[in-house]
């Protein structure tokens, strides 16, 4: 595991000057992951903020080979790329050096439209890391709900009104869906905890086989928050146990971070405009329901800690 000083000396593989928003969680996540290996990297991105924001002609922020195909197929595209490299190596057409393959996608491109493509690639066992940057909605098209959107969140397609107070469904538990494919490694991380994220990326990239990281990615635009609060909010998502940091390695679940003091969920929700309606007196029951669900999920995870779950 590299120290922060060592990490900072590594090449910046996603350059400055990209067009992602100020305060966006994606660049620090991507940069840290790209720093977590000394091998060469080839990456793909699904359609989304990362793809659009880093490749506006005539510039590219990517200092590695990078491919964008479409919205639903980042994992399928990296399947082809990884297989081609393997075939070319076998035929002696390219030097036999270690190359890491990373597929990136947002929550829309991973939880929803890209789930089939991801599932296929996991099942076939390709040698790649899939990274989902989860900002909890389709931010690139203007904040529409996804299956990663938190319960009760106000989005442009789950508008919070007087009758229906935002999104009515719970978030899909993608990390465990991925782990259920019996992949060697799947984990959840957050950019505020750089050492946890970097360790997980390093571990995932060393494994031969499909691995997965689901990373909380604050979005000032869609969360209606201040740009300078993003990392603080990422930390609060973890300290309230909404976003739990854990890994599932060879089927064994392990919690990698426990908040010293579990914070009330409201501390994470209140600064975010998308949850504004929850703080009206008439919606206090919704807030309680949300808190109870988070408590239950944290309790369940603790029950599974250290156990072989897949």
């Amino acid at each position: 595991m590299a120290t922060l000083k060592e990490l900072s000396k590594k090449d910046e593989l996603l350059s400055g000057g990209h067009r992602l928003c100020a305060g966006c969680g994606i660049p620090p996540i991507v940069r840290l992951i790209l720093r977590s290996t000394d091998s060469g990297i080839v990456a793909s991105s699904a359609t989304g903020c990362l793809e659009v924001g880093t490749t506006v002609y005539p510039y590219s922020a990517w200092r590695i080979p990078w491919i964008h195909s479409a919205f639903e197929n980042s994992a399928a595209t990296i399947t082809g790329v990884e297989t081609a490299y393997r075939a070319l190596k076998k035929r002696g057409r390219i030097p036999d050096r270690d190359i890491k393959f990373i597929a990136f996608g947002g929550d829309g491109g991973t939880y929803d439209i890209g789930l089939q493509s991801l599932s296929g690639a996991l099942e076939r066992g390709h040698n790649f890391l899939y990274v989902c940057y989860d900002n909890g909605a389709y931010m690139n098209t203007g904040i529409q709900r996804s299956s990663a959107t938190p319960f009760s969140s106000n989005t442009t397609t789950s508008p919070a009104g007087t009758v229906i107070p935002g999104k009515q469904e719970w978030r899909k538990d993608l990390t465990r869906i991925v782990a259920a494919h019996n992949v060697p490694y799947a984990a959840q991380a957050s950019p505020h905890n750089w050492s946890d994220l970097s360790k997980k990326a390093e571990k995932a990239l060393k494994i031969d086989g499909p691995t997965f990281l689901n990373v909380m990615s604050p979005c000032p635009l869609g969360w209606y928050t201040k740009s300078e609060d993003s990392i603080k909010l990422a930390k609060l998502s973890v300290d309230t146990c909404y976003w739990m940091l854990y890994e599932i390695e060879e089927g064994v679940l392990r919690i990698t971070y426990r908040p010293k003091e579990k914070r009330p969920l409201a501390e994470w929700l209140q600064p975010q405009g998308r949850f504004k309606h929850l703080f009206k007196p008439e919606n206090s029951a919704i807030l309680e329901k949300f808190q109870a669900r988070v408590d239950l999920e944290w309790q369940r995870l603790n029950e599974l800690d250290g156990k072989q779950i897949f």
Partner: peptide, 13 residues
Amino acid sequence: PITPSTEIAEGLS
């Protein structure tokens, strides 16, 4: 969601 038609979904939601 898909640009440039998303406003139809947003409006009907």
